[in-house]
Design a binder for these strands. Sequence first.
DNA 1: TGTATAATGTGATCTACGTCACCTAATGAT
DNA 2: ATCATTAGGTGACGTAGATCACATTATACA
Lengths: 191, 191
Amino acid sequence: MTPREILRQHIHKTIQLSDQQFDYFFSFFKPISFKKGQQLINVGDDVDCEYFVLNGCLKTFFVNDDQKMHILQFAMQTWWASDYNALYNNEKASVNIDCVADAETLCLQSDDREKVCKEIREVETFLRWRSNKGYIGLQKRILSLLNNDARSRYEELMHQYPELYNLVPKHLIAAYLGVSRETLSRLYNSK
Amino acid sequence: MTPREILRQHIHKTIQLSDQQFDYFFSFFKPISFKKGQQLINVGDDVDCEYFVLNGCLKTFFVNDDQKMHILQFAMQTWWASDYNALYNNEKASVNIDCVADAETLCLQSDDREKVCKEIREVETFLRWRSNKGYIGLQKRILSLLNNDARSRYEELMHQYPELYNLVPKHLIAAYLGVSRETLSRLYNSK
DNA sequence: TGTATAATGTGATCTACGTCACCTAATGAT
DNA sequence: ATCATTAGGTGACGTAGATCACATTATACA
């Protein structure tokens, strides 16, 4: 599938755009590729775009004072990644994003996003729904953190995103689940 | 402040509406009051509206198989509450909402919301930004759950929403923080 | 193709927090 | 005013998971 098709199918799950409208929207996206380990956004950076992932994997993460990393999101195909706080409130980045597995992305500038939103109502509707889905997803994760122990959080994640198992190193999965890498290792080697 | 003024000021932090536009939007909101303990939404219900809180306090929560309650959100003045998964995906409610402290709310039906969104672009923009802010807020909470221990989560919450201290019983604060009521009690009685 | 570096496994502790049990203090209905 | 119910406090104890230390295995790059 071409980048255009991947984006098109993704968007059309929520709204309908004519070919013309879609091509116009698509014209604002710039393809950018990243190599494993490359950094997209660092804490303190200015942020002016968001990334639509075509393949590979990015991670959004935070490193605390003790150098402990917490992962907010893995972004794989058809996921969006950015520091949305920085992006929407014109603040400096408060999280980092880097590349976990070689990735191709489409980059959308903030001002282009607002421009197209104004010009094509459906695009704004799409973004409203996208935010809503993101919100609902995070609520589920909070519930999972409150309600489940490390093992069932792990099993839940592997069930929902089995591709993560081979795509990202285990200590990053631990950093996503909120568990030490040692504990995670014991979890799936014991039972 | 009148309900109208509370909503108006809230909305105008994000977008500008003319008096006429605002009054039109406002006309879709129905005032509903709730008494402490009253239930707004229960798991399994159909959900067709969201609530804008004028005063008092609602809670959105989930009860697991062991009858343990987890609180997703306290909604106080100018907060919105609903089961957004049910509301946006036409599913049955998967969370409960009830009234923690006598509350006045403004209720907006789902189809009215979509209708006004279509008619007034700015309203859709407002809702897009509202979702974004919600998303950012939940990300912060996830980070707090991953990074901080019970005591600092408690202190963080009390610092951000000091009014909660007198407004809601401690065991509900515990259910929000993801800590047992006994541990929470020990936290602020020891140090 | 060898060597440095990153990823993973595993045992031995340690500890924050949960659970259970029981008590006291508010609150609210009759 | 009385009694039932809900909220909150506190001790004793159990446990999931953190931390530390070190061994082993992959991976990358020179």
